[in-house]
Amino acid sequence: MNHPLKALSDSLTAPWWSHLERDEFAMPRCLDCGRWHFHPQPRCPHCGGTSVVWQQASGRGEVYSFTVVHRAPSPAFATEVPYTIGIVATEEGPHLMTRLIGIAPDAVRIGLAVRICIGPMIGDGPPLALFQPDPDRASGLACPAS
């Protein structure tokens, strides 16, 4: 698959995209200290180790913070406003920015249980790591992006 975001990728970040293409949510994990991190870095931010592998993660987490965007940063997002950008604290530890879907912007709360939903955010766009309310821990929802 070729898309503009994948074209930005390099040897450090390419596994993120190749996992998403396989419908997998993976993050780097250090074999020296066992801890996960994100974004990918040349050295483990926890212990400085360089034996880092990508492992599939649970895809579960909770909303650490969020913002509802009312003014699009560029014309590409103009038809989507308002939308909710979140930071999710994953079960494995790392925090990551994402789009929160399957929930009205004014219903989002910090602490909301969420789970991964891999799919395009716009039309035929590339698969992204989106998050939605967790059907096991909240009201059940189909993944709107798949």
Binding site: L5, T67, I85, L96, M97
Partner: peptide, 25 residues
């Protein structure tokens, strides 16, 4: 981040809004 953050559509103000929302919480 061009790959891990920008694709979701934040303004610069959104990045600070995340700080503000957490501070309020």
């Amino acid at each position: 981040h061009p790959q891990f953050e920008a694709p979701y559509g934040p303004l610069i103000a959104s990045l600070y809004a995340l700080v503000a929302q957490r501070h309020m919480h």
